[in-house]
Amino acid sequence: MSGTDVRVRAGRVGLQVILVFVAFVSLAPVAIILSIALKSNTELATNPLGLPNDWLLGNFVDAWNEAGIGRYILNSVIVAVPTLAIVVIASSLAGYAFALMRFRGREAIFTVFLIGLMLPAVSIVTALSFIEQNLGLYNTLPGLVLAESAICLPLAVFIMRAAFKDLPGELREAVFIDGGGEITAFLRVMFPLARPAVSATVVLTFLTVWNDYLIPLVLINTESLRTVPLGLAFLKTAFTSNTVLVAASTVLAAIPSIVIYALLQRQFIQGIAQGSIK
Score class of each variant (00 low, 15 high):
residue 152 C to F: 08
residue 100 L to C: 07
residue 199 S to V: 02
residue 135 L to E: 07
residue 185 A to Y: 06
residue 30 V to P: 11
residue 181 G to K: 14
residue 159 I to S: 05
residue 232 L to D: 01
residue 191 F to P: 04
residue 199 S to I: 05
residue 163 A to C: 08
residue 190 M to D: 07
residue 257 S to N: 00
residue 103 F to Y: 13
residue 112 V to G: 07
residue 115 I to E: 01
residue 4 T to F: 14
residue 127 A to L: 13
residue 203 V to L: 05
residue 29 P to K: 11
residue 165 K to E: 14
residue 28 A to D: 02
residue 187 L to K: 07
residue 99 A to R: 00
residue 199 S to G: 02
residue 90 A to M: 07
residue 153 L to W: 05
residue 164 F to P: 03
residue 265 Q to M: 14
residue 197 A to M: 12
residue 121 A to E: 15
residue 54 D to Y: 06
residue 189 V to D: 03
residue 56 L to T: 04
residue 267 Q to G: 02
residue 12 R to W: 10
residue 38 L to P: 08
residue 261 Y to K: 01
residue 273 A to R: 01
residue 168 P to F: 01
residue 169 G to Q: 01
residue 7 R to T: 12
residue 150 A to M: 12
residue 219 L to K: 08
residue 37 A to D: 10
residue 86 I to T: 01
residue 150 A to P: 15
residue 19 L to A: 00
residue 137 L to E: 06
residue 135 L to R: 09
residue 170 E to F: 00
residue 80 A to Y: 04
residue 142 P to V: 04
residue 153 L to R: 09
residue 44 L to H: 12
residue 162 A to F: 11
residue 207 L to E: 09
residue 22 V to N: 03
residue 196 P to F: 04
residue 99 A to I: 01
residue 196 P to A: 07
residue 110 F to Q: 09
residue 210 W to Y: 08
residue 188 R to K: 13
residue 173 E to K: 15
residue 266 R to D: 01
residue 216 P to Q: 10
residue 75 N to P: 02
residue 173 E to C: 14
residue 265 Q to R: 14
residue 34 L to K: 13
residue 66 E to Y: 01
residue 131 I to F: 07
residue 172 R to N: 11
residue 207 L to P: 03
residue 204 L to V: 09
residue 151 I to W: 15
residue 183 I to C: 04
residue 272 I to V: 02
residue 156 A to W: 03
residue 64 W to C: 09
residue 250 T to M: 12
residue 216 P to I: 10
residue 108 A to G: 09
residue 87 V to R: 05
residue 2 S to V: 07
residue 64 W to L: 13
residue 188 R to L: 14
residue 80 A to T: 10
residue 52 P to H: 10
residue 13 V to E: 07
residue 189 V to T: 05
residue 142 P to H: 01
residue 141 L to M: 00
residue 160 M to F: 08
residue 220 I to K: 03
residue 19 L to P: 00
residue 8 V to G: 03
residue 178 D to K: 06
residue 255 I to C: 13
residue 38 L to R: 05
residue 125 V to Y: 15
residue 200 A to Q: 07
residue 22 V to M: 11
